[in-house]
Design a protein around this nucleic acid. Sequence first.
DNA 1: CGGTTATATTCCCGTCAAGGAATACACACG
DNA 2: CGTGTGTATTCCTTGACGGGAATATAACCG
Lengths: 126, 126
Amino acid sequence: MLHDSFWTALADPHRRRIIGLLLERPRPVGEIVEACGLSQPSTSKHLKVLREAGLVHVDQEAQRRVYALDPAPIADLDAWLAPYRRLWNERLDALGRRLDQASDGTDADVGTDTDTDAKERPPSKD
Amino acid sequence: MLHDSFWTALADPHRRRIIGLLLERPRPVGEIVEACGLSQPSTSKHLKVLREAGLVHVDQEAQRRVYALDPAPIADLDAWLAPYRRLWNERLDALGRRLDQASDGTDADVGTDTDTDAKERPPSKD
DNA sequence: CGGTTATATTCCCGTCAAGGAATACACACG
DNA sequence: CGTGTGTATTCCTTGACGGGAATATAACCG
């Protein structure tokens, strides 16, 4: 399950930035400091929050500490998202149906052209 | 795509609770007040935050305002998640390979590629 | 209109998080 | 051992956020 600390950790833009950096590859603190433009203490504090939220873990290499992403919480977030995704798919479903209906003789350009790939999706149970 | 306001909105447990309530069905404010055990003003303020984050929208029915979930941000979150999901799949992959290796040198053929896509991903864009 | 219900907004206060500076700690190296 | 580098922690200040009480707004009803 996702606890509070997870959401709190992700609530901060700098921390999301760090997460993004760590997605590319694990990095020592110095690199993160430089990339974020924050002071080193501030960065360390953010890293601590991320650590305590279980989002990252640290490997000690001599004096340096190399931070890396932990995939588990991401999976948890995915799970959290699941029920909402169902709703979202239902909407696309409805939109698709309406498109179908509309293309029944009239070329209706329905609203905003978001890249709606409402073609394939897992069966939504209701 | 995902605005700061989105993460900020989701950072509060009460607001996540509200989101959960609205997942079941749209609800008028009064119901949310009761379910959350918060004061009405406080609830209204949370709803405002959610509104401004684009997570919910409101339908006015006489004096009552019925709040409902907006699916779009959920889709955005899904998109945000995509690159991380890749990492996570790779981990599972690696784990699978290691398990394979451990179970003697029979023809190990577990996902040399990332076929472990549990579901198709919507186009990701940050 | 006047009253009632349903919701939003304002005011005020306590708490908490973020940031920088200074400092402490850990480890390598000579 | 001492020195230097890399990182963590503490201290302090400031600003944002959450909560309740009081108040304002809007819509329905008679």
